[in-house]
Nucleic acid binder design. Structure first.
Lengths: 228, 228
DNA sequence: GAATTTCTTTACTTGTGAGTAAAGCTTCAT
DNA sequence: ATGAAGCTTTACTCACAAGTAAAGAAATTC
């Protein structure tokens, strides 16, 4: 640990505080609706301080957005090695717990709402979030295909199918209705059904896999911790 | 046809012009970003005229949004009666041609972006668009189940699966990247794959249905006309 | 065709938000 | 400690946007 001079240390902390505040305020009010005074107040500083860290509202917005790139969990990087069905269940829950969190949904709404004015942000988010995750799913599905447990021609389509089956319905609903977030029971229903359909269409041994899925469903599922 | 007095006729026309202009401007700039002067200019009137039709910016926004409720096609109301696979293909294309149009995507972005400030609009849209359509799909799938061609327990889940398989991937991408709208060839790829997976998981006769699907795929698909 | 009513516009008021200049304070080097 | 440097604040400017008052134009009625 290099010991930074107190000034620079403070400066870094404040920059983070400002970006955190910007996320909160922009997510709640939208880009045009958010005022720099509100961001400053939320960050515990005053407006000119903001402008000593960033030259403009737009630059704060962009810095904040691009800084949030690595929020996405590398869900598919570390399979649990307890068999494909168990792996898929773990992945599905980890992913659901990530993208269905209220802050992530707010961020998604913000990006979608502003993407026509800030196209780069949409591209950056797409590349670092969904696309990155999709490649993870693809790698995993491919490994299962090589092991002879799945059969498909196009790994990308298969991965998109898995995503679409498991989470598109609850996520779409959550995007449109912030008040009515799905509870864990209905998430479980979506995940169970999605995996069932996916396995039926893609598994080389649908019967046994479905039996295994039924057996695992009663297992308790722990919520992923995100407070790190 | 009752002949309205010229005054009232003009008034109705102007109201429509204002709401159309509001849609354009709000969709392009967002609620906070749009100015009433811009709406007025787009509608070919001046600001006080706006305020003689609607009491406030918010009321224009709400009237415009709720007026757009019935845009959604009643795609699933009139099956083509050429067999389930052909029906599903027609439905899929009609739906794709509706929800993937740039204006519909802009509207969706606007709603998603503003839904935290206007929750009623999200609910209204969800009820009249997606939910309404889902019920149509459900009715159709149910009829096919009664006819013994499909097998499932929960029609709602089956309908959501169909939707998620066919359109969630391209639509999600289109929402995040307005510049990179998917072309018809890749839409066709999604639809083909989605139907294949759906039939494999839900059809009581997967083999024959898939053969039929292959046979139909080369058929020319006409784009739905929306200019009425 | 003139009077009346309704609608539309020109020309404002008021508030708010982005961005800044200059003064005051804190931290570090000597 | 004391002077110099940078950082933060108070107190502005300027521009733009929501909403309005009063004058002017158009249409309807007698």
């Amino acid at each position: 640990m290099t010991v930074l001079p107190r000034r620079q240390q403070n400066r870094l902390n404040r920059e983070r505080a400002i970006l955190d505040a910007a996320l909160k305020v922009f997510a709640a009010q939208g880009y045009s609706g958010a005022s720099m005074d509100a961001v400053a107040a939320e960050a515990g500083v005053t407006k000119p301080t903001l402008y000593s860290y960033f030259p403009s509202k737009e630059s704060i917005f962009q810095a904040m957005m691009l800084g949030k790139r690595d929020v996405m969990l590398d869900v598919f990087e570390h399979p649990s090695d307890q068999g494909m069905v168990a792996d898929l269940l773990v992945f599905a829950w980890a992913y659901a717990d990530t993208v269905m969190r209220p802050e992530m949904l707010s961020l998604a709404r913000l990006i979608i709402g502003e993407v026509q004015r800030f196209p780069e942000i949409g591209r950056a988010y797409q590349a670092s979030g969904p696309d990155h995750l999709l490649r993870g799913i693809m790698r995993y599905l491919d490994s299962q295909r090589r092991a002879g447990r799945l059969a498909f021609e196009d790994a990308e389509l298969a991965a998109q199918d898995l995503w679409g089956l498991i989470l598109s319905a609850p996520r779409t609903q959550a995007l449109y209705m912030p008040d009515a977030q799905p509870d864990r029971a209905s998430l479980a229903r979506y995940i169970r059904n999605g995996l069932r359909v996916f396995l039926k269409a893609y598994s080389t041994a649908p019967g046994p896999d479905l039996t295994e899925l039924e057996a695992l469903q009663s297992a308790p599922t722990q919520q992923v911790n995100h407070d790190a």
